[in-house]
Protein backbone atom coordinates (compact mmCIF):
# COMPACT_ATOMS: atom_id res chain seq x y z
CA UNK A 1 0.00 0.00 0.00
CA UNK A 2 1.27 3.46 -0.85
CA UNK A 3 1.25 5.93 1.98
CA UNK A 4 1.46 9.66 1.40
CA UNK A 5 1.56 12.25 4.14
CA UNK A 6 1.23 15.90 3.12
CA UNK A 7 1.93 18.67 5.60
CA UNK A 8 0.29 16.72 8.38
CA UNK A 9 -0.38 19.01 11.29
CA UNK A 10 -2.16 18.01 14.44
CA UNK A 11 -2.83 19.81 17.69
CA UNK A 12 -4.73 18.74 20.78
CA UNK A 13 -6.89 21.63 21.99
CA UNK A 14 -3.97 23.93 22.81
CA UNK A 15 -0.94 21.82 22.16
CA UNK A 16 0.64 21.50 18.72
CA UNK A 17 2.07 17.98 18.49
CA UNK A 18 2.67 17.30 14.79
CA UNK A 19 3.63 20.12 12.49
CA UNK A 20 3.87 20.00 8.72
CA UNK A 21 5.06 16.43 8.45
CA UNK A 22 5.45 15.14 4.91
CA UNK A 23 6.75 11.83 3.62
CA UNK A 24 5.71 9.01 1.41
CA UNK A 25 6.20 5.26 1.29
CA UNK A 26 5.81 2.85 -1.59
CA UNK A 27 4.44 -0.68 -1.26
CA UNK A 28 6.78 -2.92 0.67
CA UNK A 29 8.70 -0.10 2.27
CA UNK A 30 9.50 -0.10 5.95
CA UNK A 31 9.34 2.99 8.14
CA UNK A 32 10.59 3.13 11.69
CA UNK A 33 9.41 5.96 13.89
CA UNK A 34 11.63 7.04 16.76
CA UNK A 35 11.22 9.87 19.22
CA UNK A 36 11.39 10.68 22.89
CA UNK A 37 8.34 10.21 25.09
CA UNK A 38 5.58 12.61 24.30
CA UNK A 39 6.84 13.64 20.88
CA UNK A 40 3.73 12.42 19.12
CA UNK A 41 4.46 8.90 17.85
CA UNK A 42 1.21 7.46 19.11
CA UNK A 43 -0.60 10.60 18.00
CA UNK A 44 0.69 10.09 14.47
CA UNK A 45 -0.58 6.53 14.46
CA UNK A 46 -3.93 7.63 15.78
CA UNK A 47 -4.19 10.06 12.88
CA UNK A 48 -3.54 7.21 10.46
CA UNK A 49 -6.23 5.09 12.08
CA UNK A 50 -8.72 7.95 12.08
CA UNK A 51 -8.92 7.95 15.84
CA UNK A 52 -8.03 11.62 15.57
CA UNK A 53 -9.44 13.86 12.90
CA UNK A 54 -7.06 15.46 10.41
CA UNK A 55 -7.86 17.86 7.60
CA UNK A 56 -8.58 16.71 4.08
CA UNK A 57 -5.50 16.28 1.96
CA UNK A 58 -3.10 15.33 4.74
CA UNK A 59 -3.01 11.53 4.64
CA UNK A 60 -3.51 9.32 1.61
CA UNK A 61 -3.56 5.54 1.48
CA UNK A 62 -3.15 4.30 -2.06
CA UNK A 63 -3.98 7.82 -3.25
CA UNK A 64 -7.28 7.81 -1.37
CA UNK A 65 -7.74 10.55 1.22
CA UNK A 66 -8.36 8.77 4.52
CA UNK A 67 -11.19 11.16 5.28
CA UNK A 68 -12.99 9.66 2.30
CA UNK A 69 -12.43 6.07 3.36
CA UNK A 70 -15.60 4.94 5.13
CA UNK A 71 -14.41 1.69 6.61
CA UNK A 72 -10.85 0.49 6.50
CA UNK A 73 -9.73 -2.72 4.98
CA UNK A 74 -6.25 -4.05 4.42
CA UNK A 75 -4.83 -2.36 7.47
CA UNK A 76 -3.26 -4.41 10.20
CA UNK A 77 -2.70 -2.91 13.59
CA UNK A 78 -0.78 -4.24 16.55
CA UNK A 79 -1.68 -2.14 19.59
CA UNK A 80 0.55 -1.05 22.40
CA UNK A 81 -0.06 -3.65 25.09
CA UNK A 82 -1.60 -1.14 27.42
CA UNK A 83 -4.33 -0.34 24.90
CA UNK A 84 -5.90 -3.74 25.28
CA UNK A 85 -8.72 -4.76 27.58
CA UNK A 86 -7.46 -7.49 29.92
CA UNK A 87 -9.18 -9.13 32.88
CA UNK A 88 -12.38 -10.03 31.10
CA UNK A 89 -11.99 -13.69 30.17
CA UNK A 90 -11.47 -14.43 26.49
CA UNK A 91 -9.51 -17.15 24.72
CA UNK A 92 -7.07 -16.87 21.87
CA UNK A 93 -9.58 -18.76 19.75
CA UNK A 94 -12.31 -16.24 20.52
CA UNK A 95 -10.13 -13.24 19.78
CA UNK A 96 -8.95 -14.61 16.47
CA UNK A 97 -12.13 -16.21 15.21
CA UNK A 98 -14.14 -13.09 16.04
CA UNK A 99 -11.57 -10.90 14.35
CA UNK A 100 -11.97 -13.01 11.22
CA UNK A 101 -15.33 -11.92 9.92
CA UNK A 102 -15.42 -14.57 7.23
CA UNK A 103 -15.81 -18.31 7.79
CA UNK A 104 -12.60 -19.87 9.03
CA UNK A 105 -10.68 -21.19 6.05
CA UNK A 106 -7.26 -22.38 4.95
CA UNK A 107 -5.77 -18.90 5.28
CA UNK A 108 -6.96 -18.71 8.86
CA UNK A 109 -5.46 -22.11 9.68
CA UNK A 110 -2.20 -21.12 8.05
CA UNK A 111 -1.90 -18.04 10.24
CA UNK A 112 -2.60 -20.10 13.36
CA UNK A 113 0.10 -22.55 12.36
CA UNK A 114 2.59 -19.90 11.26
CA UNK A 115 2.47 -18.28 14.65
CA UNK A 116 2.44 -21.55 16.52
CA UNK A 117 -0.80 -20.76 18.28
CA UNK A 118 -2.21 -24.27 18.42
CA UNK A 119 -0.87 -24.99 21.88
CA UNK A 120 -2.36 -21.86 23.39
CA UNK A 121 -5.43 -21.76 21.18
CA UNK A 122 -7.91 -22.32 23.99
CA UNK A 123 -6.01 -20.46 26.69
CA UNK A 124 -7.48 -17.46 28.40
CA UNK A 125 -5.33 -14.56 27.23
CA UNK A 126 -4.91 -13.40 30.79
CA UNK A 127 -2.69 -16.43 31.33
CA UNK A 128 -0.37 -15.69 28.41
CA UNK A 129 3.13 -14.29 28.58
CA UNK A 130 4.05 -11.03 26.88
CA UNK A 131 5.65 -12.80 23.95
CA UNK A 132 2.72 -15.17 23.43
CA UNK A 133 0.32 -12.27 23.54
CA UNK A 134 2.38 -10.42 21.00
CA UNK A 135 2.12 -13.40 18.64
CA UNK A 136 -1.63 -13.43 19.03
CA UNK A 137 -1.84 -9.72 18.18
CA UNK A 138 0.37 -10.01 15.14
CA UNK A 139 -1.57 -13.05 13.93
CA UNK A 140 -4.76 -11.09 14.40
CA UNK A 141 -3.40 -8.15 12.45
CA UNK A 142 -2.49 -10.48 9.57
CA UNK A 143 -5.94 -12.07 9.44
CA UNK A 144 -7.00 -8.88 7.76
CA UNK A 145 -4.60 -9.61 4.87
CA UNK A 146 -3.14 -6.19 5.44
CA UNK A 147 -1.29 -4.19 2.84
CA UNK A 148 -0.25 -1.76 5.55
CA UNK A 149 0.84 -3.00 8.96
CA UNK A 150 1.21 -0.59 11.86
CA UNK A 151 2.91 -1.70 15.08
CA UNK A 152 3.11 0.42 18.23
CA UNK A 153 6.06 -0.55 20.45
CA UNK A 154 5.85 -4.29 19.75
CA UNK A 155 9.11 -5.17 21.51
CA UNK A 156 8.31 -3.83 24.95
CA UNK A 157 8.32 -6.70 27.45
CA UNK A 158 9.22 -9.35 24.88
CA UNK A 159 12.27 -11.56 25.32
CA UNK A 160 15.22 -11.78 22.93
CA UNK A 161 14.04 -14.96 21.20
CA UNK A 162 10.61 -13.60 20.52
CA UNK A 163 12.07 -10.32 19.29
CA UNK A 164 14.12 -12.34 16.82
CA UNK A 165 11.03 -14.18 15.61
CA UNK A 166 9.17 -10.92 15.27
CA UNK A 167 12.03 -9.51 13.25
CA UNK A 168 11.92 -12.52 10.91
CA UNK A 169 8.17 -12.18 10.53
CA UNK A 170 8.42 -8.52 9.64
CA UNK A 171 11.18 -9.27 7.16
CA UNK A 172 8.99 -11.85 5.43
CA UNK A 173 6.03 -9.52 5.37
CA UNK A 174 8.11 -6.80 3.84
CA UNK A 175 9.20 -9.20 1.13
CA UNK A 176 5.58 -9.97 0.41
CA UNK A 177 5.15 -6.27 -0.39
CA UNK A 178 3.41 -5.19 2.79
CA UNK A 179 4.14 -1.62 3.85
CA UNK A 180 5.16 -1.50 7.49
CA UNK A 181 5.16 1.36 9.97
CA UNK A 182 6.87 0.56 13.23
CA UNK A 183 6.99 2.69 16.35
CA UNK A 184 9.83 1.65 18.57
CA UNK A 185 12.17 2.94 21.20
CA UNK A 186 14.57 0.16 20.38
CA UNK A 187 17.11 1.73 18.01
CA UNK A 188 18.52 -1.60 16.87
CA UNK A 189 15.34 -3.56 16.24
CA UNK A 190 14.75 -3.84 12.47
CA UNK A 191 17.71 -1.62 11.72
CA UNK A 192 18.60 -3.90 8.82
CA UNK A 193 15.22 -3.88 7.11
CA UNK A 194 14.19 -0.30 7.70
CA UNK A 195 14.06 1.85 4.59
CA UNK A 196 13.25 5.14 6.27
CA UNK A 197 13.35 6.70 9.68
CA UNK A 198 10.97 9.31 10.96
CA UNK A 199 12.38 10.94 14.03
CA UNK A 200 10.02 13.14 15.96
CA UNK A 201 11.44 15.87 18.14
CA UNK A 202 9.82 18.21 20.58
CA UNK A 203 7.81 21.19 19.41
CA UNK A 204 6.57 19.45 16.28
CA UNK A 205 10.03 19.37 14.71
CA UNK A 206 10.95 16.20 12.78
CA UNK A 207 13.46 14.46 10.54
CA UNK A 208 12.64 12.04 7.78
CA UNK A 209 15.61 10.22 6.39
CA UNK A 210 16.57 7.23 4.32
CA UNK A 211 18.26 4.43 6.23
CA UNK A 212 22.02 4.74 6.22
CA UNK A 213 21.71 8.33 5.13
CA UNK A 214 22.75 11.01 7.55
CA UNK A 215 21.53 13.95 5.55
CA UNK A 216 18.50 15.52 7.08
CA UNK A 217 15.75 16.12 4.59
CA UNK A 218 12.89 17.82 6.27
Amino acid sequence: MRVTVNNLTFAYTQKLVLSNISFSLKSGEFLTIHGKNGTGKTTLIRCFLKMLKVNDGMIYLDDMDINHIKTFSNIGYVPQKTDFNYEFPITVFEILSCAYLKKRDAYYTKIINDFDLNKIYHENINNLSGGQLQRVFIARALLNRPKLLILDEPTVGVDVDNIKTLHETLQNLKQEGITIILVSHDMEFCQDITDYYLILNELGDYEFKKAGDNNVSS
Partner: peptide, 21 residues
Protein backbone atom coordinates in the same frame (compact mmCIF):
# COMPACT_ATOMS: atom_id res chain seq x y z
CA UNK B 1 -23.20 -9.09 15.04
CA UNK B 2 -21.69 -11.47 17.62
CA UNK B 3 -18.16 -11.47 16.20
CA UNK B 4 -18.20 -7.72 15.72
CA UNK B 5 -19.46 -7.09 19.23
CA UNK B 6 -16.74 -9.27 20.75
CA UNK B 7 -14.07 -7.56 18.69
CA UNK B 8 -15.40 -4.10 19.51
CA UNK B 9 -15.61 -4.84 23.21
CA UNK B 10 -12.04 -5.98 23.49
CA UNK B 11 -10.26 -3.59 21.20
CA UNK B 12 -12.07 -0.67 19.68
CA UNK B 13 -9.12 0.49 17.62
CA UNK B 14 -8.69 -2.90 16.06
CA UNK B 15 -12.42 -3.06 15.34
CA UNK B 16 -12.07 0.19 13.49
CA UNK B 17 -9.16 -0.82 11.31
CA UNK B 18 -10.58 -4.23 10.54
CA UNK B 19 -13.45 -2.66 8.67
CA UNK B 20 -16.21 -2.78 11.26
CA UNK B 21 -18.53 0.20 11.16
Amino acid sequence: TYKKIVTLCFDEVYARVSGIN
